[in-house]
Design a protein around this nucleic acid. Sequence first.
DNA 1: TGCGCTTTGTCCAGTGACCGGACGAAGTCG
DNA 2: CGACTTCGTCCGGTCACTGGACAAAGCGCA
Lengths: 384, 384
Amino acid sequence: MARTEFPAKATHAQTRAHNAALVLRALYDLGPISRADIARLTGLTRTSVGELVSDLEKDGLAIDVGRGPSTGGKQPTLVALNANSRTIITLDLGERTFTAALANLRGELAARTSRDLEGRDGDEAVAIVHELIDEVRRAATTPILGIGVGTPGVVDQSGTIRWAVSLDWQDLPLAKILEERHQLPTVVANDSRAAAFATYLFKGDARPANLAVIKVGRGIGAGLILKDQLFGGDGEAAGEIGHVVVDPDGDACHCGRYGCLETVASAPAIIRHSSAKSLDDLADAAAAGDTEALGSVRTAGRALGGAIAHLVAALDVRHITLVGTVTALGDPWLDAVRDEATSRSLAVTGQDTTIEIGGTGEDVTLLGACALLLTRELGLTVHR
Amino acid sequence: MARTEFPAKATHAQTRAHNAALVLRALYDLGPISRADIARLTGLTRTSVGELVSDLEKDGLAIDVGRGPSTGGKQPTLVALNANSRTIITLDLGERTFTAALANLRGELAARTSRDLEGRDGDEAVAIVHELIDEVRRAATTPILGIGVGTPGVVDQSGTIRWAVSLDWQDLPLAKILEERHQLPTVVANDSRAAAFATYLFKGDARPANLAVIKVGRGIGAGLILKDQLFGGDGEAAGEIGHVVVDPDGDACHCGRYGCLETVASAPAIIRHSSAKSLDDLADAAAAGDTEALGSVRTAGRALGGAIAHLVAALDVRHITLVGTVTALGDPWLDAVRDEATSRSLAVTGQDTTIEIGGTGEDVTLLGACALLLTRELGLTVHR
DNA sequence: TGCGCTTTGTCCAGTGACCGGACGAAGTCG
DNA sequence: CGACTTCGTCCGGTCACTGGACAAAGCGCA
């Protein structure tokens, strides 16, 4: 573990980029706003803000939108983000379906299209990605900022997919491939982590610095935002909590162990352990007062809650958002998760912890891929 | 959670500070080294490095130490860190004893002195801190950089002790008090987290970017280094894993729950659950083949290993260091920790994870307080 | 021994970006 | 209507990185 590489040196250009990102974020979060207000909020001088805003306007990213009310002096000119000045191509590579869409700078989606895989994988699956990109690209009317991709499997920082079982991809440098073929900056990230980042970025002004987003569907994975940045860990595998053993006497898991969290709390496991055919049926039965169904729901919720207790204790994250198909189980499930999470971790931290179901629905992965690209290309978030 | 505060703007001074830190770290990690080599490693120009080194030499922090061998051209002048150019006052506020010492820039300790509390707490305990500082300060022969303090309890970023049971301190702004009384920059941090930082900083060139240091003694707490920085979480309570419930049917814990990790794996719990009088006795008995003793040791080790499995899965940290009195149980205990940690978490990550016992011994907290101060005042570590 | 080639460290002019003061424009308030 | 504010911009000043040039000082080969 020799550390011959050093962090990047600082230059004037980086200073400029940092301050430009500050201004852009003020525009993004605080809507139409005057140059003077931006200066006050960021601590920059009015001179610098004026110059930076003028650069943004030259690029079309920002735009003057009339004057605001006077507070005793000259009335300010308000500047706003021009959300439609750029287009992002965003993809969600699901295990069965690939979806592509266009997004603007605020993550508003358009031109959505998808392809069922029907068992295709490997190079064929890559070909479908190319097709989808070409297709949605034709619908774009403003300059394209780049491509954002959310995919299952472990993805490293260079955008290489280390291992995606369902697609039979191993060590596939997808980001590089797409950059070369389409000549656009590309970000590839794990879908759970993309979802986490969407939940974070599109919270606007209310963004918490630390946030865990847990995706509970066929598998269970978390994306961690720590200090305003996606955290990857040593091998970019942070958040892979689905295969922690929670019950050594439990069912066999396809990973080779017994009693992994996924064998208790994932969608297939929940259905297997109940007499219901689908999550919706189970939710309906539980809502109708079926005690057996309610028991299944609560058992699954408690197992997840226990894992969350560990997460909360270790990281002291006070914001947990749950996404994925299992959130369809609704309040009985959520209550079980909360009960177990708070009763299993320390009072001080447990009290202020909010555990809630995320709102962005099916689009989370698309939005997340978009959010990651926005951040990398425009530096929309700035770490404190 | 309104986010009206923005991150700090970037200025020329910060650019300079960043690059100065880069140079300082090169000196710190890579011993006597030429200006040209520093330039190559950091990416800075020879011009900038020359200027930065000259500043450091003016401050006495760096010093020319002769010439190095030629590689075909003019032989380089080697520059080294002047470890004894500054003194740090460092304190370990234990639950029963307060210890103070002087440290140089490499964390070499001198003038150690301590006071037994003998039950004193509150303001009396603060008075003892002042006394100790005054006493060791008289022994200093070079300019004092500041004061570093490691203390039990929850400490926020401003150096205010939120709550330290044993000393009866609540919301005590210790950093501010010491800064005013002694007119020196001061860092106050939780002892486990200070220990974690010492383990990180004094690893020299081999510093891993992510590291968890778990202190297992009367209590159990972890310090987390993530991306080269101490991670605190939303309430500066990250790493407080001692009160996660690992066995709902377990013993009552003084926190009010049943079956917390501390009721199974802490020093008092281990002794209570065995027939031994002390940890050393237990270690001896286990080593001698006493199966009951070995069982106690392994049970404790496995409980800790289970918690570590959660930590490893959630964060994908590949370096875990164990410190504290319980490490005296030696290999049987360490093996149990490792077994459980690896068998309970995913193969991919579990494989490369190293779990080892830390070496810095009793001085960890003193060194950690010193390391934190060094980092804040000299910017010794730089995030990547 | 002499000459060309390298490497090192420094000097210097140039540039990019922040700073702070000043100024005109355009309001409010008494 | 005049004093006072606030806004946005202009301008000279300073700070810190850049890249080219140069002398010092060594190596290697003829």
